[in-house]
Design a protein around this nucleic acid. Sequence first.
RNA 1: GCGGGCGUAGCCGAAUUGGCAUAGGCGCCUGACUUAGGAUCAGGUGGGGAAACCCGUGGGGGUUCAAGUCCCUCCGCCCGCACCA
Length: 823
Amino acid sequence: MTEYLFDEIETRWQKRWADGRSFEVTEDPARPKYYCLEMLPYPSGDIHVGHVRNYCITDVVSRFKRMKGFNVLHPIGWDALGLPAENAAIKHGVHPEKWTRDNIASMKRQLQRLGFSYPWSREIASCDPEYYRWNQWFFLRMLKKGIAYRAKAPVNWCPQCQTVLANEQAEGGACWRCGSVVEQREMEQWFLRITAYQDELLDDMAQLAAWPDRVLIQQKNWVGRSPGAEIEFGIDGKAPLRVFTTRIDTTYGATFMVLAPEHPRVDELMPGATAEAKASLARLRAQDRRSRLEGKVEKDGVFTGRHAVNPFSGEKIPIWVGNFVLMGYGTGAIMAVPAHDQRDFEFARKFGIPVRVVIQAEGSKLEGDALAAAYDGPGRLVNSGTFDGLGGDEAIMKMAAHAEAKGFGKATITYRLKDWLISRQRYWGTPIPVVYCDKCGIVGVPDAELPVVLPKDAPFTGEGGNPLEKVPNFVNARCPRCGGTARRETDTMDTFVDSSWYFYRYLSPHKHDGPFDPAAVRYWFPIDLYVGGIEHAILHLVYSRFWTKMMRDLGLVTFDEPVLRLFPQGMVHKDGEVMSKSKGNTVAPDSIIGRYGADTLRLYILFVAPPEMPLEWQDGQIEGPHKFLLRVFRLLDRHADAFAQEIRERVSAELSPAARDLRRKVHQTIRRVSDDVEGRMKLNTAVAALMELVNEIYRLEPEVATGPMRPAFREALETLVLLLAPFAPHLCEELWSRLGRRFSIVDRNWPVADAALAREDELELAVQVNGKLRTRITVAAGASEDEVRRRALAEPKIVEASAGKKIAKVLVVPGRLVNVVVQ
RNA sequence: GCGGGCGUAGCCGAAUUGGCAUAGGCGCCUGACUUAGGAUCAGGUGGGGAAACCCGUGGGGGUUCAAGUCCCUCCGCCCGCACCA
């Protein structure tokens, strides 16, 4: 019965929405706008309820804003997702384009079934040639400005995916898609110079006040800005060794140096190494990458047999190779100060290298193990020549100035962030629009020849390697500059290039003479609300910030940041784990919709936990929201038809006590739901408020539904339907039309709370003695403080509790409580 | 190891600015209606106690008239980063 009910209602309204014209959006400068979206979904076949949560959140906010009178853009698009699409295509023996489009169609159907019909949407797919065109267009402009460049560098290679990866995509040494351990390879690849924006990515966080701190902290750590200094340590008969340090003030305490095992000068420094030393070196090199994945590996190293000169003290110190020094950070070499660095200390102890204190807190005489523990404590320099007695920043500044004056060093800033590697050895992605000419070198494809499209006949063997290399028609090209023969680039772009700017393309998805319409961008941007998973904190969300800054420098936009408010929703868990296909603990939306309806599923997801918290899926809990919707339906079913026939009367100013209670609850609920959705994004408490309202309506229905107070009852029902509409849109469209109102409910104004009606006439105040609850009193809302105090002190329980004691103070907190302090 | 967050009923959770702890839902109990109820409607539901009252937000301590909320400390869980020089 109920299944039939919701199925029929939902089918009916999904059809109406699909051809409804009232959802059109325009760039009308006179109207306030609201641009909200969820992170670009992957067309990865079947969705499960874990995916559905961010759609629910965004859809509720969109509908709410629409009812608030905003022009709302809530678009949807699809990521081509190069690598997984290609792997899936190989696995299933179909072309990745067909696989992608089939999955897009399937996902679209599933989302429509959920009521996410995106009536005010503009749709894009980043696998379309027209999207390729603009990716390439941007690339060529970046190439011209030196932001895109090709270089040989150590890069991450995923042996499973058979392609290189960006640093961000190989975090912790594992591939972001397949989890394989990545290898380091020296390869020539395409990069985007994101490091040109590293300071701005940090500084502009000041504009991101509405982003969660944890995301900003993650990004900050990822950029990893460390101010410090570079110093050169001389080596007899060789070029000096450069190191980076944040603690130049400890240089007198450097008792040895350490190179990363992969450091390019290791072989040069140990030409006549013994077989034993060579074996140690080989061991260190083999060990290094794995050690970082597996966590703790004991510090290990080998002495090169050579020494370097400390430029401050002139002391000769041994040069070691050590597994705890990373080639990817700083210069890949360090000066080791065992007295003031835990890692250096451990290494020094293992190999019997001396430890020299150069910073000491006044009066302290630390020795041995305690030295390391004190390494970052405050103190003054000792054993540091002419710098003795200096402390903190002053020591750092004076020593850096000295190094610069003597020409062996200078203050620098080191960053962890590396340039974004965007080339991929895959078929299914945007072709990088350049050719290699024997005479002219690297030449960009002219705009007029864009887009460079993928050949349809690429062979998919599943044997690895890029199929594009095996398509002569694609590879053999003419040089646009000299007309000679040239070889076309076969690498394609990282899928994260697509997602870096898709939300601009939404504004004008069919534009052919530019990536987007600047007037539309002026109107809609920046994005007001962006909902998505936290897993993109240092991937998509860094890339798209970079992309916007890059476009600003190309003169395409005038602002620095694309997203005003970021809202990372919590994951959906089941059986204690994140719900995901690979875990096999998914719940299909279809099975829930078939049983309870799409509105119930939405309401459950929104109600059972606040949106930012993880949600534990529990089968039984969905009954509550379902029963609630049926309760609403039955309530309206009893009255709607009659109300639709009647003339709408104004609510009388003379209210019965029951009608007064009802109106108060109605207006309090308007206020609560509005605040919860608009300000705090606490959609779970908004739903709870609506449940309270329905309980109150049921309670008062016998007294108010008929007779002179009927208009107040009608007001309650209509307001309920309006407030519930963003949460249960199918049901509320149905009920709204049953009340004789016109399609669509999202075009109705959101109700406005009347403060006078919401105010309580009487207040129940707690009366405490020394902070302990003793009794309660009921007073008129406007009662004076004096009167409240008198009433409280007259209460028998208070008289009893304070008998024989001195009343020191009586605190009256208006509207809340009275606290009598006795001694 | 460093950084961030969290810990409230049998379960999910509420408490927005330090002001009546536990809203709303699940579950459970009672009653009504009913041939029947896994439907619906109404009521109850932190622990102890006959009651007065006492206890109660992971443990301990502190600030305050008043602490789930602020401070210190310990325990547990989650997330992020991790030889970053």
